[in-house]
Amino acid sequence: MASSSTTPSTQPVTEGHPTSRVSSGFASFWRQLGKFLLSGWALIFFVFLYLPIVTLIVFSFNESRFATEWSGFTLQWYGELFQNRLLGLALRNSLIVAFSTTLISTAIGTMVAVALERFDFKGKLPIDALLFLPIIIPDIAMGIMLLSFFALLNQSLGFVTIIIAHTAFNISFVAVIVRARMADIDPTLEEAANDLGANEWQAFWRVGFPLLLPGILAGALTAFTLSLDDYVVTFFVSGPGSTTLPVRVYGMIRRGVTPEINALSSLLLVASMILVVLSLALQRRSSRLNV
């Protein structure tokens, strides 16, 4: 695929292939083919990314118990879902845990992010490492080590232990997100506020905090989602009466496929999509605020 010209192309970045340039018809054919294959590849990828999700939603309205063939539209499974008291309880538990852990981890995760981004101090590196560990540790390891720890303390398993565990991994995610947002905020803004007569406290609440708020909310949404999402850690640290939704659903799945789960999963999908769109809208708003 030797090209015939040595003049670098001056095409805009957004348009077409980065290596496009004037070339012979033969080379152009291969280039077109390459582009075509690449686009096809991407298209297939996106289809497979969404195939399971779409299938799930479609078959939650299927009359048949089996997911092979379409036998007619029904809302029956959604109806049964809302009658399921155990699932309702699990949802309630999940929400209790998610709200509590979001509150705690957002508060202390934001605090540590502010300290790390604002000050240089001894122990900064160890804290960085400490925050990094919960992100990379496998959840199975996190689950068993917390179980062992609570067993050692004779702490009975329940809401408290779940919230402690979820907070332990959520602090890191909140801190990472808030720090990223803080790094985008011009540090001279608070200096400017000081210069105009605001003390540190006033400068933070009037300037730093409003600018940081979208980051904090994005962190909170992430913490909330991760808490609702978690199965493995929760499995080890939950006790009777504190079973969360993923744990309950997992148990049902292990017993076999039921259309009721399709319906529940579809609802969960829609809920998480709303959360994602919400958090992205927040981020967009915050980036618009940046000059």
Partner: peptide, 18 residues
């Protein structure tokens, strides 16, 4: 991002259906 943020157990269950 959307599938990535949807419930992990649910996503894997969907693959199971497939």
């Amino acid at each position: 991002m959307v599938p990535f943020w949807t419930n992990f157990v649910v996503r894997m269950y969907a693959w199971r259906l497939l």
